[in-house]
């Protein structure tokens, strides 16, 4: 173990997998010559242009290339420069890669990873800042991971590349430069297993992606008021580890779900609904959601700040359903 930043953890996962498996290649806009977020830095020099493939600005053709290459036996790792751009090419996602195996009666295997930077906080405005994970989670046939830490980034991306299904790896821009301990050797974090980031007995906070860090900050502050929050990072949204969440809720009797995407029809609604369906008897307060308001991500700094959920919002939500003990 040694501390490295999140984007280097992703870089290491890619490089080690490419060394191990010659069918793995990386493609996308500028991934070779000028890696936009730096995740594929140094890889063109190391692996050459056949395995680190710069493409035209053509999201449909990039994703189609991945579908065809995967059907023909390769393991493409695609970078879509911003998650927002994925929707230029959603046919290849929804109608092609997600459904081919089922439509073909199980005879196709589509081991594809699509990596997309997501999230706001850098004044990149409405078309470069979104958190649209719920739209992907609505499509049977896809898997969706949202690593929040360098350790999870490397382990989840490695598992995603080895998975025989299309996996979307959504990487929050604010996480890229966060440092954390990461083993040098390869390891896999199995998809579909949540992580309890902090044990607690009074309330369960389920947070995704960068919001995990805001939730942990909130938990510290709540601890000062005598409220012990259990913070859970699902890590994989699809498939979702509800067992870990339900086990926690049965212990704490309260749940607050936190994500950066807009609240309406967001992923939090799914968790809240499942908790209500499966553990209604255990709840002592309504499940709450902390999420963005129903508007595009604004440009201007004070507006963007008002838009993005933060630790303070989480503290307030938790306080509203949890009796103070101090």
């Amino acid at each position: 173990m040694r501390p490295i930043i999140y984007l280097m953890a992703l870089n290491e996962a890619l490089q080690q997998e490419m060394e191990r498996d010659p069918t793995v290649f990386v493609t996308g806009e500028d991934v070779g010559q000028h890696p936009p977020m730096g995740v594929t830095l140094g890889m063109l020099q190391k692996f050459g242009p056949q395995r680190v493939v710069d493409t035209p600005i053509s999201e449909s053709a990039i994703l189609g290339l991945a579908v065809g290459a995967a059907a023909a036996g390769l393991r493409p790792v695609v970078e879509i420069m911003f998650l927002d751009f994925l929707f230029v090419a959603f046919d290849q996602v929804i109608n092609q890669m997600a459904k081919m195996r089922y439509m073909f009666g199980g005879k196709a295997k589509l081991p594809i990873v699509v990596r997309c930077p997501c999230g706001g906080g850098y004044q990149m405005a409405a078309q470069h800042s979104q958190s649209l994970e719920a739209m992907l989670c609505h499509i049977p046939g896809l898997k969706v991971v949202m690593p929040a830490t360098p350790y999870n980034a490397k382990g989840l991306l490695t598992a995603a590349i080895r998975d025989d299904n299309p996996v979307f790896c959504l990487e929050h821009k604010k996480c890229y430069t966060m440092a954390g301990d990461v083993p040098q050797e390869q390891y896999e974090l199995p998809l579909g297993i949540a992580e309890v980031k902090r044990p607690g007995s009074d309330v369960t906070i389920v947070a995704t992606s960068y919001m995990v860090h805001e939730a942990l900050k909130a938990a510290e502050e709540l601890a000062g008021r005598g409220i012990e929050a259990e913070v859970i990072d699902p890590r994989t949204l699809l498939p979702l580890d509800m067992d870990t969440i339900l086990k926690s809720v049965r212990k704490t009797h309260r749940v607050v779900v936190v994500h950066e995407a807009v609240k309406f029809c967001g992923f939090g609604a799914e968790i809240a609904a499942q908790v209500a369906e499966a553990a209604f008897d255990a709840l002592e307060a309504p499940p709450l959601r902390v999420a963005a308001p129903f508007c595009p991500v604004p440009f201007s700094a004070p507006l963007e700040e008002a838009y993005l959920p933060n630790a303070q919002n989480i503290v307030e939500a938790v306080s509203s359903v949890t009796p103070a003990k101090a």
């Binding site: 449909s60 189609g64 065809g68 290459a69 023909a72 036996g73 390769l74 493409p76 092609q96």
Partner: peptide, 10 residues
Amino acid sequence: PPIAVGAAFA
């Protein structure tokens, strides 16, 4: 066609 391009890439 984009899918055929992918198979050709392979």
